[in-house]
Simulated scan of single mutants.
Amino acid sequence: MIAQVSPPAFQNVGWKYYLVFAICGFTNALFFWAFLPETRGVPLEELDSYFEKVPLFVPGSHVELRDPAAREEELRAGKLVVGGVEEDVKEVREKDSEV
């Protein structure tokens, strides 16, 4: 669509057509900043509980993340913490194999 619309738009509007892309880029960046929380450092298993804690409007909110070093030690010890509930990895595998 952009390839078909751009030539006539440049002929009729000229350089002002670039403003469409600038405005779209700015509004997209604003949306990402306001509504999509940072998930760096959150393990995949804990994303559901993380998104339940994060408010709709993200800026200014603070959700406490678990210490990455402590999380690594738990994983090495075979402990799986999902949504604040600690389970043994062997038990989880047994549950999955039963299903």
Rank of each mutant, 00 (worst) to 15 (best):
A3K: 09
A3T: 15
Q4V: 11
V5F: 12
S6N: 06
P7K: 01
P8F: 08
P8M: 03
P8Y: 06
A9F: 08
A9K: 02
Q11D: 13
Q11M: 09
Q11H: 09
V13H: 02
G14E: 06
W15G: 10
W15I: 07
K16Q: 11
Y17K: 02
Y17T: 15
Y17A: 14
Y18A: 08
Y18P: 00
V20K: 00
F21M: 05
F21V: 04
A22W: 06
C24E: 10
F26P: 00
F26M: 12
F26L: 12
F26T: 15
T27L: 14
T27Y: 04
T27G: 00
A29F: 13
L30Q: 09
L30R: 04
L30D: 07
F32Y: 13
F32P: 00
W33A: 12
W33Q: 15
A34P: 01
P37M: 13
P37A: 09
E38V: 11
E38D: 15
T39S: 13
T39Y: 08
G41P: 12
L44A: 09
E45Y: 00
E46G: 02
E46M: 03
D48Y: 02
S49H: 07
Y50M: 07
Y50T: 02
Y50S: 08
Y50H: 14
E52T: 07
V54Q: 05
P55D: 07
